[in-house]
């Protein structure tokens, strides 16, 4: 169904705006979709572990990863691999703290991740004003995030590799336990799964992916800035919901989320290309989401 919607969107785009389907156009859209898709992966993993799972700190953690990444670049003379690793590690650390609060102390995810986001955002404002960190992305990072090789955007290859890894993980021994934690924590616990560990692990992973995506985002926009990841906080939840991740937990169909990320990006760019005002864009976005929810509901009834 999602693929059908995507094809319909492209067809509408081509009809109202000739040239909407061009290889350069599509490559551009996929680049933008890749970032949305990565943030959608964060939500997919945490929502799947249930307990009203949600990670509203992905934006702040991504911004953290961005600044940590660019600072590492400045310290290591432009060592891009080190920058990406350190940014991912910073995200993992922030995510682990979320996981500790949520799985260890039983703080509701909505509250815990919101609180950590406000501390990280506040800390970044402070750090940027006091330490004046380097913010420039290295040429290698720009090339990974923004350039294409043989017509294929490099970031798409990264996204593809991470998607394969995510699908493998979600169907491995670990992934099955992770989803079992979401679909029925009691049964999972009684059959020997350390549900607390898996719930915590999900937030750590989400943080790691967000930190990595933040570092990659600096390559795409060529520098780190405050509020870099903010736009992805709620949109990532939306693509996860459209992609078929059940909010009650237990299901993690990441391929659906990938489709949803592309649909969302194409829809937004179509509305922007039509020069629709912000008001109209918001209304169409809201109605689309509602339509999806209702359709899903009706399909369940039938």
């Amino acid at each position: 169904m999602l693929i059908g919607v995507l094809l319909a969107l492209f067809a509408i785009g081509q009809m109202v705006l000739p040239g909407f389907i061009g290889s350069a156009q599509i490559a551009n859209q996929l680049k933008i979709a890749a970032f949305l898709g990565l943030f959608g992966l964060c939500q997919t993993v945490v929502i799947a572990t249930g307990g009203q799972g949600l990670d509203l700190s992905v934006g702040a953690v991504a911004t953290l990863g961005a600044f940590v990444g660019t600072s590492t670049l400045a310290l290591t003379d432009g060592n891009t691999a080190a920058a990406i690793l350190v940014a991912t590690a910073a995200g993992l650390l922030a995510g682990s703290l979320n996981g500790l609060g949520i799985a260890g102390l039983g703080v509701p995810p909505l509250v815990a991740t919101l609180a950590s986001a406000s501390v990280i955002d506040g800390g970044l404002v402070l750090a940027v004003s006091q330490l004046h960190p380097a913010i420039a992305a290295s040429p290698a990072l720009v090339s990974i995030a923004a350039l294409t090789s043989a017509g294929v955007p490099n970031i798409l290859i990264v996204w593809g590799a991470l998607t394969v890894a995510a699908l493998w993980f979600l169907h491995s021994f670990w992934g099955v336990r992770l989803r079992a934690t979401g679909s029925n924590p009691v049964t999972a616990y009684l059959s020997g799964t350390n549900t607390r560990f898996f719930r915590g692990l999900a937030y750590a992973l989400s943080g790691g992916i967000a930190g990595l995506s933040g570092a990659l985002l600096t390559g795409y926009v060529s520098q780190a800035f405050l509020g870099l990841g903010n736009a992805y906080v709620l949109t990532s939840v939306v693509v996860a919901a459209i992609g078929g991740v059940a909010l009650e937990g237990g299901r993690a169909p990441y391929l659906g989320v990938v489709c949803a990320a592309v649909i969302m990006t194409v829809l937004i760019s179509l509305l922007t290309a039509l020069q629709m005002a912000e008001a109209g864009r918001q209304i169409i976005l809201g109605s689309t989401l509602l339509a999806f929810l209702l359709l899903d509901r009706i399909l369940k009834w039938v």
């Binding site: 909010l247 005002a277 918001q282 109605s287 929810l293």
Partner: peptide
């Protein structure tokens, strides 16, 4: 109606309507 009658999860349904309300506010006052 969305939450009680149609049974949508309130978290996502009200997130969707928040986009509608924000769009409406912008339409009244860009």
């Amino acid at each position: 109606v969305l939450v009680a009658v149609l049974g949508l999860p309130s978290l996502i349904a009200t997130f969707a309507t928040s986009a509608l309300w924000f769009g409406g506010a912008l339409a009244i006052m860009p």
